[in-house]
């Protein structure tokens, strides 16, 4: 019984570690912030969850370890997407550039179409720009 549990724990932890390492390598190697953010949010969560399941399996479902592991999993699943969203949005607004090879920027295309549509809004654009420079 115990050997089976050890094997299962080892396999689950190994799966989690593989995902974690791939996420870390992605954060190291990806070309721009947005790609790195998606590495951090998806791959790292995917790396954490099997490891937590491994802990639940190894320590038994009714132990304190399992309870804390499930709380950590729930918190990761709740807070990680929100933080990634806030970070990506902030990075875009702060003007962090995309990778040169990025093929699609929907927001920019949308804004270009908007600017063609509404000429009267050109009036307050330069002011916005100046503020942006002042405030970073």
């Amino acid at each position: 019984m115990s050997t089976v549990i050890v094997v299962v724990v080892a396999v689950l932890a190994l799966v989690g570690l593989v995902f974690s390492v791939s996420g870390a390598v992605g954060i190291l190697r990806m070309p721009d912030v947005y790609c790195r953010i998606q590495c951090s949010s998806k791959t790292i969560t995917m790396g954490a969850l099997p490891a937590l399941v491994a802990l639940v399996v190894g320590e038994g479902f009714e132990s304190a370890y399992a309870a804390r592991a499930l709380i950590v999993a729930a918190l990761l699943l709740t807070v990680n997407p929100a933080a990634s969203h806030a970070l990506a949005r902030a990075a875009y607004r702060a003007g962090v550039p995309m990778w040169d090879g990025a093929v699609r920027d929907d927001v920019k295309a949308m804004k270009a179409a908007e600017a063609e549509d509404a000429d009267h809004r050109h009036g307050d654009r330069p002011e916005d720009r100046r503020e942006g420079e002042h405030d970073d």
Binding site: V33, A94, V96, P97, K111, R129, G132, E133, D136
Partner: peptide, 19 residues
């Protein structure tokens, strides 16, 4: 601002005005 900006953001200045 040179102190607090990072190079990526600085590069973006030109790009943003192009946009």
């Amino acid at each position: 601002e040179g102190e607090l900006r990072e190079e990526g953001e600085q590069d973006d200045e030109g790009e943003a005005s192009d946009r």
